[in-house]
Amino acid sequence: MTATTEELMVFAASQEIRDGNTVFVGTGLPMLAAYLARATHAPDVSLLFESGIVDPNPTHLALGVGDFRLMHGATSVRGLHYVLGLLQKGSIDVGFLGAAEVDRHGNINSTIIGGTYRHPGKRLPGSGGANDIASSAKSTVIMCLHRPERLVDRVRYVTSPGFLGGNDEREQSGLRIGGPRMIITDLAVLRFHPVTRDAYISSIHPGVDPATVIARTGFPIEVPSDVARTPAPDDTTIQLLRGMDPGGVYLRGR
């Protein structure tokens, strides 16, 4: 059994969750990653959603964080300000972030495509809780597509701060904790140099050509000849994961 790219991404994300962690989760692949972690190595993980839902145990897969399907089995249902307040307090070990555009220092743009802030080519939904997660979670995991226009040298607009211009710029801006741990794309996993905070290729997914990774990264990046391959889930894990999304709502590539 071979994992699809999406299953590989979900598995990689799930490995970032330790047992006992409190994680902040959004719609889509991160939701599955958190469920997978709970069903395998992290039975005592707690899940928080910006809709105010605390640690649910859904029977049916939710289409979004506001979907009533996500309310089932929750330990508490509160409001947005309450759960984002817990985030600001420092209660979140890992926050998951999607990105329309992300740069080599892990800054995310989810506000505009093209043009300027005042006169955007295309206006996107905006921060939502993403800026809050990027500012106050102890660490974040970013998931996005690996395309030259998506993985860029510098985002057009910083909706959610990563390491800003690199080095200690994040800390200088007043953000004392947190920052991105990694970027999981459909081709590779990138991590950040501990001093310069420049993204580097940590592993590439099985079967991916290093030349493709270089071509699809919007800034110069090296792929070492002995680069690691991203660990793939075993058959049991793949089956478990597919059982969580039987309709292929989020795991579309199969």
Partner: peptide
């Protein structure tokens, strides 16, 4: 951000002139 704007409401609801948040620091917001 969600929390920044919700906190502006929260401050008004407490009768205070301003909200205090960590969000928005360093960002283009």
């Amino acid at each position: 951000s969600h929390f920044a704007l919700a906190s502006r409401f929260s401050a008004a609801g407490l009768g205070l002139p301003f909200a205090t948040v960590r969000s928005l620091l360093g960002s283009d917001l």
